[in-house]
Nucleic acid binder design. Structure first.
Length: 669
DNA sequence: GCTCGTATCG
């Protein structure tokens, strides 16, 4: 057997002068066993250098020279895996008659790293057929594959194998993986049992259990384990802090959150990205945006997750414009948004009804290949609907391979807002066919669609569906929807009877009835409903306004005045209503009677014209609800000042060309 | 070999 070419590969593929080369040169002519050692060290070199070309070259050289390359199969597998070529590693593995358990383990963990959990599980299942026994390394990686694939039974059976082999409780890594798997399955009983089977615990094991509790909504228990861990003298790491802070946020337990914040500062983990991100979200949930901002500003290089958390935090505190500014800053600093970022940002667009921005984010999502993500789709449907384009929302919905409940609910809401009650109802009956169970939000949306479209009969039908469906009976807010539907249709007594059927009517329910009384000028029932609301919440400013509207509509100005006095006494002030419109990428905000806009004069002039035109078309101003005691002419005028009318008029003006002369010329045009 | 932070609907 000629083995001379070894010298060739050593000079071609290894850096000159290294040890492996010398070794090869020395042993080049000493027979097969010497070559075994030589190949072994060359392969070792390949493992370290992670060079796929070298590995392939050595592999080919072995085959060409007729060297029994499979005698070094485990090393070859190792080399290929280290170069990232799991399929070539698998090829070698399949050619081998008795791969060592280490090779089985390496391949399985490589598959799991590459998110090819199915391949890992298939491989695991083969191991028993070749009478090789899995070891603690096998178990510490394979459980992750079962949890990725949500194979509950397979995971439990594998736990069984471990017990049969007498490995239960023998290895920390294994138990941590097992705790993690059970936690991901939501089987916290089993997770706790596994945790307790280990007598001397470590930080990873404890953290796995803490994470499990927070992810399963058992935040108090998570804090309990953290305390236990601290008491045992186990030092928390960044993973631990990240999760414990989430638990504090979910519980809105600020004092504990601050305490943990202090601990992260003391241990230096506050500068790690994950705990810092959790701090942002903890303060966000406790509504301390300034604290979140402070944490965020201290992060040196915020990544996508940190940016996303901060955007979500601003939205949580209803600071939508700022949130969207943050999205822009993020993109400007070249941090790539992901599905989390875009679905979060879309929530802000939905609230502000920013159609243009929704389209832009939609386009970004497509560029990033995220247009099938269910969160993105659901928020797109929601935000297209809320910005007045339910047709596009429907197109997104129809593009879904598997529509889910949230996207259905969002679309129904879109139709409700669009006044298309029929389409909302149609969707409601359609999802039954898709096997989707409606939830509370579905019913709320469908009923408000019926309400907005005056579809009393259809609403009744949906409600009876609901009564039959829900074992404990519809929730109070669903009764409120039905009260609204009946009330608007003028069936006030039926609405009142419905409230009587509710165990503990809340203020929303009574206020809904009050709103209906307002529409139909039912003063005595209005007074009754208002008293009920104020019994439950004397500070409910909307109720005073509603009731005084009812009095005003009947000309009972004495009552209106006394209600106003009462509000002043109780130091109540209703926030003025605001309307806004998005024109030329700018938001213009208006309040009733607002003169602060630069184009106010033009706007009022145009509005007067518009109203005259609509009167010609048959519009009769409904002046019943104007608060002040004034004559008809004045009432009409005060209706003109309504914020929504001002905003719409500004929009009309902007598109009419009437304003171009007075605008500062745009250099881009 | 094991553990982490960001997301959708009334």
């Amino acid at each position: 057997m000629r083995l001379l070419p070894l010298r060739t590969i050593s000079s071609r593929f290894l850096t000159t002068g290294n040890k492996a080369q010398l070794l090869l040169a020395k042993k080049a002519n000493c027979g097969l066993s010497a070559n075994f050692e030589s190949y072994k060290s060359v392969l070792q070199r390949c493992v370290v250098e992670k060079s796929i070309t070298k590995t392939r070259a050595v592999h080919n050289h072995m085959k060409q020279t007729g060297f029994p390359h499979l005698s070094l199969g485990n090393k070859l597998i190792d080399a290929y895996l280290n170069c990232g070529s799991v399929d070539e590693a698998r090829q070698v593995f399949d050619d081998m008659i008795h791969p060592h358990v280490v090779s089985w383990n390496s391949l399985m963990s490589a598959y799991i790293r590459l998110k090819r959990s199915q391949d890992a599980v298939s491989l695991y299942r083969k191991i028993f057929m070749v009478s090789i026994l899995p070891d603690e390394f096998t178990f510490s990686s394979i459980f992750k594959a079962f949890s990725d694939l949500k194979l509950v039974n397979g995971g439990r059976a594998t736990h069984g194998h471990l017990v049969v082999l007498g490995l239960e409780g023998s290895n920390m890594f294994m138990s941590s993986a097992l705790v993690d798997m059970y936690a991901k399955f939501g089987m916290m009983q089993e997770a706790l049992f596994t945790y307790e089977a280990i007598s001397v615990k470590d930080v990873v094991l404890a953290t796995a259990l803490i994470v499990g509790y927070t992810q399963n909504g058992e935040d108090l228990k998570a804090l309990g384990i953290f305390e236990e861990m601290v008491n045992c003298g186990i030092k928390a790491n960044d993973f631990t802090f990240a999760s414990v802070l989430i638990a504090c946020g979910n519980l809105e337990n600020l004092s504990f959150g601050r305490l943990i914040h202090g601990l992260t500062l003391r241990s230096g983990f506050h500068s790690r990205i994950a705990p810092a991100t959790s701090l942002i979200s903890m303060y966000s949930k406790c509504l301390l945006v300034e604290d979140s901002l402070k944490i965020f500003n201290e992060i040196v290089n915020p990544n996508t997750v940190a940016w996303t958390a901060m955007i979500g935090c601003l939205l949580h505190s209803h600071r939508e414009e700022e949130a969207l500014q943050f999205l822009l800053s993020m993109i400007r600093s070249s941090v790539k948004p992901n599905a989390f970022t875009l679905s979060t940002a879309l929530r802000g667009c939905a609230t502000l009804a920013l159609f243009e921005l929704v389209k832009q984010i939609h386009a970004s999502a497509m560029k990033l290949g995220l247009e099938t993500n269910r969160y993105i789709c659901a928020t797109l449907i929601d935000s297209y609907g809320k910005s007045g384009h339910v047709g596009i929302a429907r197109m997104v919905f129809d593009s879904l391979a598997f529509p889910d409940l949230v996207s259905v609910n969002s679309l129904i809401y879109g139709y409700a807002q669009d006044g298309d009650g029929m389409e909302a109802i149609r969707l409601f009956y359609m999802i039954k066919g898709l096997g989707i169970e409606p939830n509370n939000a579905t019913y709320v949306n469908v009923l408000s669609a019926c309400s907005n479209s005056g579809m009393l009969e259809e609403g009744h039908q949906v409600f009876s569906f609901l009564v039959a469906d829900h074992k404990p009976g519809p929730s109070t807010d669903l009764y409120a929807c039905m009260v609204d539907l009946l009330g608007r249709a003028g069936r006030l007594h039926e609405a009142a009877e419905l409230i009587a059927r509710v165990q503990k009517p809340d203020k929303i329910l009574w206020r809904t009835l009050l709103g209906a009384c307002k529409i139909h000028g039912e003063v005595s029932m209005a007074k009754w409903a208002a008293d009920k609301v104020l019994e439950l919440d004397p500070g409910d400013d909307a109720t005073y306004i509603l009731l005084s509207n009812v009095y005003a509509s009947l000309g009972q100005w004495k009552e209106v005045t006394s209600l106003k006095c009462l509000m002043r006494e109780r130091k109540l002030k209703k926030d003025p209503a605001v309307s806004w419109i998005h024109v030329n990428q700018e938001i213009h905000t208006f309040m009733a009677g607002d003169m602060s806009h630069a184009k106010s004069e033009l706007i009022y002039e145009e509005l007067k014209e518009l109203v005259e035109k609509t009167k010609d078309l048959g519009y009769v101003p409904d002046t019943r609800f104007v608060l002040q005691d004034m004559d008809e002419f004045e009432k009409e005028r005060s209706l003109l000042y309504h914020s929504e009318k001002l905003a719409v008029t500004y929009g009309v003006l902007s598109n009419s060309g009437k304003m171009t002369l007075s605008l500062i010329p745009n250099p881009k045009q």
